[in-house]
Each structure stands twice: as structure tokens, then as C-alpha cells.
Design a protein around this nucleic acid. Structure first.
Lengths: 217, 217
DNA sequence: GTCTATACTTGGATAGAC
DNA sequence: GTCTATCCAAGTATAGAC
């Protein structure tokens, strides 16, 4: 079952074109997480991927092209996981917050949100990159809005808040918490906030228990 | 009143050492705001300051040294203004939120928070820089906690929230809103949030009107 | 204190051998 | 598809003239 067209395997494990692409993308994710956009150079990424710097340009055209592919990868993986987790958490706001907490925790471990933050920050250096990053952030924003929507329809707070506004705030808060956690090297403050939110949520769940929380219209 | 030691004035207006330092700091602020940490190179900053690239190393030792001086400048200027504004806004939460909104608006215009965001993001590239940035962020966090403290003591929500937690969330939210606004090139979503918060605050002000909102102990 | 000139390093990108 | 070699642009930093 040896793959054709691969003469030797000094690079990434497996050494087909797909494996090389995957290794480069993972190298880009690691570099963005550990050193930010400024440190995510072609040579640094290739070093982490264990292959040659020229391959970045062969497979992705440019460094920014690779970084955007890395962002795509992160977005796809995380969005799928988030959606599954949120669905599993059912219709209770308390459960949603608990899910958000564990997801945040895993994000910090894997550096997924760090990648997003680094790319948003790096996007300042070119308008074209900014547009690409914005397009990739859009699904996250929609997802936040959709996850919150069931709880805003007939909840006790109805009329006081609008879905997109809350979603915008949640996304901003998520990004900001990641920045502070990475700066401090300490996620305790962020996790404490999630715990506090969970308690507030359980209160809201109680208040809305008999009312129309689960109603559609 | 000609200053000694300055032979000619092709650089910044005035052309004393202090003027040059100020021009470089302003150039660094502009570069960080417009192009992020990755784009804030010695040559780019010097171009914006209208003077020579070598002067950065003469006056500040390194590019990072200048960027930190720029962050110092921003921190000092903004903190002074914030404190004055918050004191002027008195003891009503509604007024505090209104103040926060106008301050946020001005920050986006001048790019002050953009500088902070860029430096936090850029700090990923070196642990030493991270420590310096963290130290400069500390006063902002303390200020947020102090501003909120009068409203958390005996407010209706007392016991549900702790000051440092809220302050942490506010700072994170502020940073995140700045990131999203700069990415979108549109601050409307953020401003709408401030308006929503103001309405919520006026509700809280009403609820706490007769109670111990202003009590010290 | 400020400039020019320059040394040196790193980064993006391509050509061509294999 | 991958590697070596290389070009060129841009970056940090310093030396030395003025």
C-alpha cells in the first residue's frame, strides 16, 4: 500500500502530500499559539512541521495562505465539537454555561482561540487578510447567536436583550478572556467567571422554570 | 530661546531631544494602531515620526523598548482621563456606563485600546515582553475594579458578584470589543451594547434607589 | 543629537536538481 | 512532491561623520 510519488520520508510521518499539508497546518497552529502572528514565519513553521520551508509556498502559495488554512482547520474542528457539545447540553442555560466552561478550558489547552486571536491581531497588517479572517469568524458568531437563541425568546429577560447583541458580547468576552489568560499564563480568573455565570444561570433557569422558556413563539 | 545641541530641524517639529522622543512615541502609537505589532518596525515608525531609524536605538535601546514607552504613554494619558471622567460621572451606574461609552468611542478614534491589544498579542513572541505588558495592564485592571466597587457593595446583586471578577470581565470585554470593531471596521455593534448596558443600568439604579447603594459599610 | 552608511540577520519567495 | 540553493527585500542594530 505504498503511496506513489513520495520518494522518501524525512519529513512528516507518512509522507504523502496530504500528510505534509496536515503537518504544515499543525505547525502553523503551534507557531501561532506559541509565538503569535509576528513569530509565525515560514521557517519557524517548517521547523515545527519537520519539513522544508519551500513546501509552504508549493502547497499554500504564501505564509498567509497557510495561516488562513490553519484558521480554517481550527474553525471546522472546533465548530463541530461545539455544536455537538451544545446540543448534548440540552435546553438548560445552566448546562450551556457548564459546556461553555469545559470548551473554553480545552480551547486554552489546545490553543485554538489563541490562534484566532493571533490572526485577528495579525490581520491589522493587511486589509486583505482582515477580510479573510472576518469571513472565518462569521460562523463562530452565528453559532453563538444560535446557541443563545432558545434562551432569549420567552425568558424572563425577554425584550431587554437582543440575540445578536448578546452573541457579539459573548464572542468579544471569549476573545478578551483568552488574551488575558495567555498574558497572565493563568486561566483561573476566567474559569471563576464561568463558575459565577453558571450560578447566575441556575437562578435564571429557576425563574423561568414555569414560564415559556422552551416556547417557540 | 534656541535649544542647545540641536544642529538642524529636518525631523520632528521643534527638534529637541524631547520632541524627537515624543515624535517617535507618537509614530509607534500610530504604527501599532494601523498595522499591529507585526507591522511596527523601526523603519516604519521612523517614517511616521519623520526622523531617522537609528534614533530609535539611541533613545530607546530597541524597538520593543520604544513600543513599551508608547504603551506607557497611552496608559498614562488614558488613565488620567478615565479617572477624571469617572469621578465626574458621580455615583449613578447609568452615568458610569454613559461615560464608559464615550470613553470607548474616543479610544477607537485615537487607537489607544488598539495599541494595548496589539501589544498583548505581540507579547506572545517573547516572555520578557509579556511581563512588561502585563505590568502596564495592571493599573487598568485596578482602575476598573475601583470604578465598579461603589456599585457592588450594597447593591441588589450583592453577594452574587465579586469586584475583581466583574473587573476582569469588563477588561476582557473591552479588549474583545476593540478587536471585533477593528476587524469589522465598524463600531456600531459595540456601541449598541453600551446603549443596552445603559438601559440595564438605569433599571438597577431604580431598584437600588432606596437601598444602600451609596453606603460605605 | 542626528544623520549616513553599513554589517548582519531573518524572512518571503523562486529555480532547478532529484 | 520534496529538497537544496539562492535571490532579494526588510529588519535590527552599530559605527562614525557631522
Amino acid at each position: 500500500m505504498a503511496r506513489p510519488g513520495s520518494k522518501r520520508g524525512s519529513g512528516p510521518a507518512g509522507s504523502g502530500a496530504a500528510e505534509t499539508r496536515a503537518a504544515l497546518i499543525q505547525g502553523a497552529i503551534d507557531a501561532l499559539r506559541d509565538t503569535g502572528y509576528a513569530g509565525a514565519s515560514a521557517r519557524e513553521i517548517a521547523r515545527r512541521a519537520g519539513c522544508n520551508q519551500a513546501l509552504i509556498f508549493y502547497h499554500f502559495g504564501s505564509v498567509d495562505g497557510l495561516l488562513l488554512a490553519a484558521l480554517d482547520e481550527v474553525s471546522a474542528v472546533r465548530l463541530a465539537k461545539y455544536q455537538a457539545s451544545v446540543q448534548r447540553s440540552g435546553s438548560s442555560l445552566t448546562e450551556l454555561v457548564k459546556t461553555a466552561r469545559s470548551v473554553f478550558d480545552e480551547d486554552l489547552d489546545r490553543g485554538y482561540v489563541a490562534v484566532l486571536v493571533a490572526m485577528i491581531a495579525g490581520a491589522q497588517s493587511s486589509p486583505a487578510l482582515g477580510a479573510e479572517v472576518a469571513a472565518r469568524l462569521a460562523p463562530w458568531r452565528e453559532f453563538a447567536a444560535e446557541s443563545l437563541q432558545p434562551f432569549l425568546g420567552g425568558a424572563p429577560l425577554a425584550g431587554m436583550i437582543r440575540g445578536e447583541e448578546v452573541a457579539h458580547a459573548i464572542v468579544a468576552l471569549y476573545l478578551g478572556l483568552e488574551m488575558l489568560a495567555s498574558l497572565d499564563g493563568d486561566r483561573a480568573a476566567a474559569l471563576a467567571l464561568f463558575d459565577r455565570a453558571r450560578r447566575a444561570a441556575s437562578l435564571l433557569d429557576l425563574l423561568g422554570a414555569g414560564s415559556s422558556v422552551r416556547e417557540q413563539r
